[in-house]
């Protein structure tokens, strides 16, 4: 006891000087580098953060679509058996209006991000970055949000303004960071 107290005091004093927390935690986490995490770090943000190198066009995307997407999303993205990727009715038609890329999605990066992480549904993360850019371009062009000749890449994609970008609000503004 007689030696512990001064040592504890010393530790506290040092911690205070260093500006560090004095809480005792197990420290069992293994240090890793961002390079180690790269394969998992797949979030593409609205400002383009996280978008990888690569590019694609609607025409390239159309070919990949026929090969890998059409069985679920139908010809030209018209849907069935799963979600339609084109069209959509005005959101003022009712609270149960189906949400589509054209009438609802606020950011073009969501299209890229979701294809990259989740599609094809049975073989997620098997597409190359070029393929994801091409499919994103194809779907945006189907919806007339970009032109048929537009190239999508880390520079151009975040600049695509989605029709409903300004259609959102938080439920509790005071809770937003």
């Amino acid at each position: 006891m007689s030696t512990l107290k001064p040592m504890l005091f010393l530790a506290l004093a040092l911690a205070f000087v260093a500006g560090e927390s004095v809480a005792q935690t197990p420290r069992l986490g293994k240090p890793v580098s961002e390079a180690d995490i790269a394969a998992w770090d797949i979030s593409a943000m609205p400002d383009g953060t996280g978008l990888p190198p690569g590019s694609g066009t609607p025409a390239q995307g159309a070919k990949i679509y026929v090969e890998k997407c059409i069985s679920c999303h139908g010809e030209n993205g018209t849907g069935k058996p799963f979600a339609a990727l084109v069209g959509g009715t005005p959101l003022t038609n009712g609270i149960e209006t189906p949400k589509t890329i054209a009438n609802f999605w606020g950011y073009s990066t969501i299209v890229f991000d979701f294809i990259r992480r989740a599609m094809p549904f049975q073989q997620p993360r098997t597409l190359t970055n070029d393929e994801v850019y091409a499919l994103t371009a194809y779907i945006l062009a189907l919806n007339k949000i970009i032109d048929d000749k537009d190239v999508m890449n880390a520079e151009t994609l975040p600049k695509v303004k989605m029709p409903n970008r300004d259609g959102f609000m938080p439920r509790f503004p005071a809770m937003m960071p």
Partner: peptide, 17 residues
């Protein structure tokens, strides 16, 4: 941005409920 955002009668939507 899509699934757990919901449409209000005026056509706007709540995101981050």
């Amino acid at each position: 941005g899509r699934t757990y955002s919901q449409i209000l009668p005026n056509g706007k939507a709540y995101r981050f409920y």
